[in-house]
């Protein structure tokens, strides 16, 4: 597969390490009252769709950036690639 890196352009997927569901960005607050339940959902409950999926890929053999790749797990069509850091900030994980 080819992942169109937002900075570096098309890169072979072999340069990347796969992690999984991009919802791993949404780490709950460990000090919150409902932390245990929230972390149970965070760590164990994930979708495994046949179709479009937002996933985390690490450009280990490239610029060491984490990417959020929107990929169709059936066709391997990739419709969007973003820097995970930008996504995390957009999702309010910045300060």
């Amino acid at each position: 597969m080819i992942i169109n890196h937002p900075l570096l352009g098309p890169c072979d997927a072999q340069e990347f390490t796969y992690l999984g569901d991009a919802r791993l960005i949404d780490r709950p607050d460990g000090m919150a009252g409902d932390a245990e339940d929230a972390f149970y959902h965070y760590a164990y409950l994930r979708d495994n769709p046949a179709g479009e999926h937002r996933e985390l890929w690490f450009h280990e053999q490239g610029d060491r950036s984490w990417l959020v790749v929107t990929r169709n797990t059936v066709t391997h069509q990739i419709t969007s690639v973003e820097l995970a850091r930008d996504v995390a900030r957009k999702q309010g994980r910045g300060v």
């Binding site: 780490r27 985390l56 690490f58 984490w66 820097l83 850091r85 996504v87 995390a88 994980r93």
Partner: peptide
């Protein structure tokens, strides 16, 4: 060594980007 570095980059970029 490699897995820990990856994990720390994950934390840095994805969990606490700022």
């Amino acid at each position: 060594a490699v897995a820990v570095f990856r994990h720390m980059e994950f934390a840095r970029q994805c969990l606490w980007p700022d």
